[in-house]
């Protein structure tokens, strides 16, 4: 893992955490990777806004269907898992 990659991941995580914190009406510093989105009070509309923000900010398609949340193999349960999912989508879709 070289330095550039670490910086990239770091920036990605900061941006994702900022999106989640904005939805949870909290400061980003108040979020930890272990927290679940449910515990942050994020409901289905909040989830739709988060996915919208991720697609806009990272220029990716998030293949999420609220009727079948696990279908795309995306784990959006915790702050950390959302960061990992976005990282994977960015790698896959933007090479």
């Amino acid at each position: 893992m070289d330095g550039n990659f670490l910086t990239l991941e770091d920036g990605l995580q900061r941006k994702v955490v900022a999106i989640l914190a904005a939805q949870a009406l909290r400061e980003p510093s108040g979020l930890t990777l272990e927290m679940t989105l449910e515990s942050l009070g994020i409901d289905s509309l909040g989830m739709a806004e988060i996915i919208f923000a991720i697609e806009e900010d990272f220029d990716v398609q998030v293949p999420f269907n609220a009727n079948d949340p696990d279908a795309a193999g995306l784990d959006l349960g915790t702050v950390g898992s959302v960061c990992a999912a976005v990282s994977r989508l960015v790698r896959e879709q933007r090479g």
């Binding site: 509309l45 739709a48 806004e49 996915i51 919208f52 697609e55 806009e56």
Partner: peptide, 9 residues
């Protein structure tokens, strides 16, 4: 290519 997710409601 996308609109705000609350467009319908």
């Amino acid at each position: 290519n996308r609109v705000h997710p609350f467009t319908i409601p």
